[in-house]
């Protein structure tokens, strides 16, 4: 067994060293893969706040991932086409600045999470799972049939958005941006988990009655956590749009929601670095098994099943033992 903080440091170091090694060996594609891991991990860190800390099984986080992506896509495509976003009552131009995309993505996904959370949190259990799915499906179908931004065809951005002082088209510099945001989100998530708010949130999951007895309403705490969770996943969506230089309704599909859950669980639910380990393992498997066989999802399915049945703490649980608090 390894102590969890040590393991976390190792995971972070691996995620940093792989692209640096790739840079040295001139294997830019490895850097792209590592960037994808960082972005998926970021999406997972977001979900983990709702799922791991709050016990809210959201089957609709693709909605926030996709909205973040479309925030970048729409703003960038308006800027690239020299076509203002709106002219009435005042003119708003598109932009290719990541520093503008991110707040917009955070705001948009935060508002969506507020609306979806406010309604969904009236339910619990399987009803919560399904109502979050229902809202994500609504946005998915809307995106498919809304012609202005490409509908099913999606929206190409052609050029990656800009960040002051960096050349984002260089894979390693773009990786640095994704990695920095992931590290920030991890730090933030760790702060939340230890704060009074985080303790109350975990209290709401473990023993709602006791929390009520202390005079704290679980609904508002959960809602705030759900909004934060959605915003972080939305930020990951914005980065994912820039990674691919493309957004499409596929980002909003229920399979994407399923994949984000898989990252979290594969790594270990409620573990700070669970999503990082999970996303890393997922990409590793997808890439290696995918190269071996067309049917890579068959062994992957069995592996996933084995994790659920026999390794309940996920990868982190396997290496660092059961979580200390229950």
């Amino acid at each position: 067994m390894i102590r969890e903080p040590v393991l976390n440091a190792l995971i972070l170091a691996a995620l940093l060293l792989v692209p640096l090694g790739a840079l040295a060996m001139d294997e830019p594609f490895l850097i792209t893969l590592a960037t994808k891991v960082a972005i998926f991990a970021l999406a997972g860190v977001g979900l983990n706040i709702a799922l791991g800390l709050g016990g809210m099984v959201s089957f609709g986080h693709a909605a926030f991932f996709g909205l973040g992506g479309y925030a970048t896509g729409v703003l960038a495509s308006h800027a690239l086409n020299y076509d203002p976003l709106m002219t009435e009552p005042f003119q708003i131009e598109g932009t290719t600045q990541m520093l503008v995309h991110w707040p917009v993505a955070l705001l948009l996904s935060g508002l969506a999470a507020l609306a979806i959370g406010a309604l969904s949190l009236r339910t619990s259990g399987i009803f919560f799972i399904m109502i979050t799915l229902a809202f994500a499906q609504m946005i998915f179908y809307f995106a498919i049939s809304w012609p202005a931004y490409g509908g099913e065809d999606g929206l190409s951005i052609y050029v990656r958005s800009e960040f002051p002082g960096l050349n984002t088209l260089d894979p390693i510099q773009f990786f640095a941006i994704a990695f920095a945001l992931l590290a920030l989100a991890l730090g933030f998530s760790s702060l939340i988990a230890r704060s009074r708010f985080g303790l109350a949130l975990q209290g709401a999951r473990q023993n709602e009655a006791r929390l009520r007895a202390t005079g704290i309403g679980p609904y508002r705490i959960r809602l705030v956590a759900f909004v934060i969770s959605g915003m972080i996943t939305g930020l990951a969506g914005a980065l994912f749009a820039d990674l691919n230089r493309f957004v499409s309704p596929a980002m909003l599909s229920w399979q994407t929601s399923g994949e984000i859950i898989v990252f979290v669980i594969l790594g270990g639910v409620g573990r700070l670095f669970g999503p990082v380990a999970g996303a890393g393992l997922y990409i590793l498997l997808e890439h290696n098994l995918g190269g071996l066989t067309e049917y890579w999802k068959l062994p992957f399915g069995f592996l996933l099943l084995a994790v659920v049945l026999f390794a309940r703490g996920g990868l982190i649980g396997l290496l660092a033992g059961e979580k200390r608090d229950g």
Partner: peptide
Amino acid sequence: PDIAVQLADK
């Protein structure tokens, strides 16, 4: 689409 973009990058 995202897999296709990745393969193209690779």
